[in-house]
Design a binder for these strands. Structure first.
Ligand SMILES: [Mn+2]
Ligand SMILES: [Mn+2]
Ligand SMILES: [Zn+2]
Ligand SMILES: [Zn+2]
Lengths: 153, 153
DNA sequence: ACCTAAACAAGAATAATTCCTATTTAATAA
DNA sequence: TTATTAAATAGGAATTATTCTTGTTTAGGT
């Protein structure tokens, strides 16, 4: 679970939504908060199941549309994976993903130094006719002990 | 279009299939060759449309199943993207992908040096409880001139 | 030339996502 | 605060991508 956990300041999310020109509806707040509160990379369906108990009238279509809206507004991003459903991530800072082949987890991996190394290399390469916007390293790996967390830093 | 173009030695593909313990059926050969012959990263549907004219009785289900089989046998790999359909790649050497935001292309990008830099960095990091298998850099970028190819090396 | 397990075609079924529209609501203004 | 209204939602239908089922065909071994 993400360090900040389940209690993220709702008014901050509200602010972020209106900043993006979006109505701060109950559904959007709840979905955005749910995505913010996890370090998993949930599917629309998973978010739906999670928010439903406390929001019994919310509809799956709204979850899909809201996620799309968040992505369009740069408040979330898609995380495409090999299974054929889309996953979502509210972390918008530059970070990478470890795909654990034995547990199926997608683990966030942030590393300032790696970041710099790759950025600098791409700059030095000066690929003609191409403007690099950002990059994302997908690391396929397996946990030696699936029970235990991996230790980053 | 890939350098080797449309005429890839069929007997080599046949060999690769039997080596993997797979019957070298007409359908598999044609699908595998189609995937080999392109440097795009086609969907199942796109491969189907491409092979259909010369193989009018081939079925879409066979294309899906064959691609799955090729992936299982390590003769192809999946390339997940933000749109919700799967893309496939017959290149099995370690290489990266440039996602062109203005043209939608997925461009192969191979770079021995970058490869090494990242591999060495990950090794030096020695992430506890994790065995890195491989990695793939996704570069989001846009072509300055969408008409022209980008120039790698 | 057989034999047979594996693969295929055709189409049905399912899963993921998008679309439609009557109703509700957040935001703004009176 | 209340009225107004454009935007968003619920609910369900529709569409798209993928998988499954089953009778028929075929590659590869004898
Ligand atoms: Mn390729
Ligand atoms: Mn899908
Ligand atoms: Zn992430
Ligand atoms: Zn590729």
């Amino acid at each position: 679970m993400r360090a900040s956990g389940a209690h993220i300041d709702l008014s901050a999310l509200k602010e972020a939504l209106s900043c993006a020109g979006l109505k701060a509806t109950q559904q959007r707040l709840v979905i955005y908060q749910c995505l913010m509160a996890t370090d998993k990379h949930p599917t629309a369906e998973e978010i739906f199941e999670q928010v439903r108990p406390s929001n019994p009238s919310i509809s799956l279509g709204t979850v899909y549309k809201t996620l799309e809206t968040l992505v369009d507004s740069q408040l979330a991003r898609k995380v495409p994976v090999s299974e054929n459903k889309m996953r979502y991530d509210a972390r918008m800072d530059s970070h990478h993903h470890i795909y654990c082949t034995n547990t199926g987890e997608i683990i966030d991996f942030q590393d300032k130094e790696l970041e710099m190394i790759i950025r600098q290399y791409l700059e030095s390469r000066q690929i003609k006719n191409l403007e690099v916007q950002n990059f994302n390293l997908q690391i396929r790996a397996n946990k030696l002990n699936p029970e235990q967390d991996i230790l980053i830093d």
